[in-house]
Design a binder for these strands. Structure first.
Lengths: 226, 226
DNA sequence: ATTTCCAGTATTGTTGACAATATTGATGCT
DNA sequence: AGCATCAATATTGTCAACAATACTGGAAAT
C-alpha cells in the first residue's frame, strides 16, 4: 500500500493515506463537508499533520477548500466524470505504447500471470465489484509504471486513478463487462509482449473508450446519480 | 496571477505562490537544498503555513522531500524533460480539440488579439526569452481553459506548465523559433475558429512535437546541461 | 592513513494554545 | 410575515515552544 522505499513514515503521510483511502472507498462521500476536529479524533491525529495532508489532497483535486469555511470532498458532475475518461484514454494510450517499448520480459511475464489471477478472481467474486475493481486497478497500475515515464506514471497513479476508483467503487459493473474487459486486457498484453507499441496504444484507447461509453449509457439510464 | 475568485487569501496560499514563482523563475534552482528557516525569513513567513505550502508543492512534483532531511527543488534529467513533452503533446492535443468544440466566439476573438500582441512582443523583445516564454504560456493557457475540461486544465495549468516554464526560462530559444512558433499558433487558432477540432488537435500535437525535437537537438548539441 | 563509532548540533516533525473569520441563531425593523 | 442586522459560537488559520531525527565533526581503533 505504502511506498516501498520505506523511510521513516511521518504523521502527515499517515494522515494523507488515511484520508485518501477513506475518500476512495467512500467512507467520506463526495460532497461531504468534513471538519478538521472530526477527522482528528477519527484518525487519532493532531491538526498540524492533518492540515498538511489536506493541502496535499486539495492539490490533487480530491478535496476542495474554502478559507475559514471548511473542507469538502470533491464531487464530480456526470460530465466531469466523462471528461476524466477522455483524459485517461489518451494518457493510458501513451503509457501502453511506452510500456510496449520499455517493459522488461520479466515484467511482462508478471503481468500475464496477474491476468490469470484476475480471471479466477472474477469467477470467484461473482459480482463483487470491489475485487474486480482492484484487479482492474492492478493491471492499469502495472502498465503506468512500465511506461518508465515518471511524470506520466505520477499523474496517472497520483491523480487520475484515485478519482476513477472513487467512483468505480460505487458503480455497479454491468453484467458480463468484467469478462469482456479481461479479454481486452489480454490483447493489450499480447501487443506489449510483441513490442508493438502502436497496437498497444490503439487497443488501450479502445478499451478505455468502451469503459467511458459504458458509463455514459448508465448515466442516460439514470442508474448513476451524481 | 492569483485566482480571480479572490476569497480571503491565506498565509499558506501566499507561501505557495511565492515558492512556486521562485522555483519557476529560477531563484530556487533545480537541485537546491532549501531549509525551512531560510525560506521563512526570506518570505516573511512562519513555519506552519510554509510547511503546508511545501506539502502542496511536493504533491505537484516541484519539490522532493525526505523526512528529517529537508526539501530540495526537483531537477529533471534530460530524458525526463523529453518525456514531459510527450505528455504535453497528447494532453494539449486533446485540449485543442475540445477548445475548438467549446470556446465561445468571444474567447476566440480574444485569442486572436492575443496573438497580435505576441507578434509585436517578439519584435520588441528581440531574444528576451522571458517575455517570449510568457507570451507562449499565455496562448497555451487560454486553450487549456477553453477546453472546458476542468480536470484537463487543472493538470496542464497546475502541474505540467510550471514544470515546463521552470526549464523554459533558462532555455535560450533558437533563432527564428519564436516566429515559427507564432505561425503555428495562428494556424491552430484558425482551426479552432473553424470549429475543426480534429485539425486543431493535429496541429497542436505537431506544434509541441516540434518544440520537443528542438529541445532534443539542444541536448545532443550539449547546449542544455541538466 | 583509513575507517568506524559516537556525541553534539542543527534541522525537521509535532503539539497545543491563541487569533481571525465565516456561519448561525436571535432580535428588531419594515 | 419576511427580511436585514448583529452578536455569539464554532471552526479554521496562525503561531511559538517542544520532541524526534538526520547530518557533522572528532576521537579511537585497526
Amino acid at each position: 500500500m505504502t511506498d516501498s522505499t520505506s523511510q521513516t513514515y511521518t504523521r502527515a503521510d499517515e494522515a494523507f493515506d488515511c484520508l485518501q483511502t477513506a475518500i476512495v472507498k467512500g467512507d467520506l462521500a463526495p460532497g461531504d463537508k468534513i471538519g478538521e476536529l472530526d477527522l482528528c479524533s477519527r484518525f487519532e491525529l493532531t491538526r498540524g499533520p492533518l492540515r498538511e495532508a489536506l493541502g496535499r489532497l486539495e492539490s490533487r483535486g480530491l478535496l476542495v477548500r474554502r478559507p475559514h469555511a471548511g473542507v469538502k470532498v470533491v464531487s464530480l458532475s456526470a460530465s466531469e466524470l466523462v471528461e476524466l475518461y477522455r483524459i485517461r484514454e489518451i494518457m493510458e494510450g501513451l503509457a501502453a505504447r511506452q510500456a510496449a517499448e520499455r517493459m522488461t520480459a520479466q515484467e511482462i511475464a508478471d503481468l500475464q500471470a496477474t491476468l490469470d489471477a484476475h480471471e479466477t478472481m472474477i469467477d470467484e467474486a461473482q459480482g463483487q465489484a470491489y475485487y474486480q475493481a482492484e484487479g482492474d486497478y492492478d493491471f492499469h497500475h502495472r502498465i503506468a509504471t512500465g511506461s518508465r515515464n515518471i511524470k506520466l506514471a505520477q499523474m496517472l497513479l497520483g491523480d487520475l486513478y484515485y478519482m476513477v476508483r472513487m467512483y468505480r467503487y460505487r458503480l455497479s459493473t454491468s453484467a458480463g463487462r468484467p469478462h469482456r474487459a479481461l479479454g481486452e486486457h489480454r490483447r493489450i498484453v499480447e501487443a506489449i509482449a510483441q513490442r508493438d507499441g502502436e497496437l498497444a496504444e490503439f487497443l488501450m484507447k479502445r478499451h478505455i473508450n468502451a469503459a467511458r461509453k459504458n458509463i455514459e449509457k448508465k448515466i442516460q439510464e439514470g442508474v448513476l446519480t451524481i
